[in-house]
């Protein structure tokens, strides 16, 4: 029982991280360092709660949230690809804009700068309790998880198929690996980048929707709390490969779930929360160190 409830909480913590990581991964493969995942998640979370609270319709809320994130990604793509803005600067701009605009609307429309908590909020579809009782361990872990968690798990193979088994996916990777070569081969590099940013917006939107709608059903300013950056860290840790990225996201999800539990012991929660960032930093450094060591010129013996 303990194991199952732990695994269930790992899965729940991982889902938004996994989606954010895949969002950053797709753009990473098009050679874009996407720091805007965080802001796009925030926009999706706010829109989902606002629309869900106003209409009481769960699917309207779900799609509105994802759509808002995709629109934010289009803003990023127009500023960078059409108007040549720097990707990192514009991405940080999206984050600031998302934080500012959601706070502005909280203060202006809802008169509650502290957050938005609709009195009633429709439920996302969850795997019904007892429906998977025939599966030992795995059954209880999946029972009660929202549909977005399942979508997040499904997104990993989908991303893999897209990147490695479709022509568009290989164009996208080619555009990311060598822009000039790809252009001479007739690939429309800007279109590939725009596509990557759009997919990234879609996945970030799912991440934000899951974060706000699954269990909490409310919106807080800055409620994404760096998850977009953890996703980015997972992508870099996983070297931009779908399966490794997913594994890294799960690792960080385990740290998150552990953090909740270890607070009962004497370890300060801040150190647990640091783990994903420290792991990403060390992992990235180690990966670069190996590359540098492998590529160094052979030593001339005296």
């Amino acid at each position: 029982m303990v194991l199952e409830s732990f695994l269930s909480s790992v899965l729940e913590q991982t889902a938004p991280l996994l989606l954010a990581a895949l969002a950053a991964m797709i753009t990473q493969r098009a050679n874009i360092l996407n720091v805007a995942v965080e802001g796009m998640m925030l926009v999706a979370a706010f829109t989902a709660i606002a629309v869900g609270g106003a209409t009481g319709n769960i699917w309207l809320a779900f799609f509105a949230g994802v759509l808002a994130s995709v629109l934010a990604s289009q803003l990023l793509s127009i500023m960078t690809l059409k108007f040549n803005a720097d990707f990192v600067v514009a991405g940080l701009g999206i984050n600031l804009l998302a934080g500012g605009a959601t706070l502005f609307m909280l203060e202006r429309l809802y008169n509650s700068p502290g957050g938005l908590r609709p009195i009633s909020f429709p439920e996302l579809w969850h795997v019904p309790a007892g429906s998977l009782a025939f599966l030992p361990v795995i059954g209880p872990v999946f029972e009660g998880q929202s549909i977005v968690v399942l979508l997040a798990l499904l997104a990993v193979p989908l991303c893999w198929v897209f990147l490695y088994r479709t022509p568009v996916g290989s164009y996208l990777r080619a555009a990311g690996e060598d822009e000039h070569a790809a252009r001479s081969a007739g690939i429309r590099v800007d279109r590939m980048k725009a596509l990557a940013v759009t997919i990234s917006g879609l996945l970030s939107g799912l991440a934000g929707v899951q974060l706000a709608m699954d269990k909490l059903q409310f919106f807080l300013p800055d409620m994404t709390a760096g998850r977009g950056f953890i996703g980015l860290a997972a992508t870099l840790f996983g070297g931009g490969q779908p399966w490794m990225t997913a594994a890294a996201a799960f690792l960080f999800g385990i740290f998150g779930a552990l953090g909740d539990r270890l607070q009962a012991f004497d370890i300060p929660s801040q150190f647990i929360l640091m783990l994903p960032y420290a792991a990403a930093l060390l992992g990235l450094t180690f990966a670069r160190w190996r590359t540098v060591m492998r590529n160094r010129p052979a030593k001339i013996t005296e």
Binding site: F83, A85, A90, G93, L96, G100, F104
Partner: peptide
């Protein structure tokens, strides 16, 4: 007017800042 207007404007400014008209 909520003070978060400035956060919003900052975001806009950062987004516009490095943009160049082609």
């Amino acid at each position: 007017v909520p003070r978060s207007l400035v956060d919003l404007l900052t975001g806009l400014l950062v987004l516009l800042m490095t943009a160049r008209v082609v």
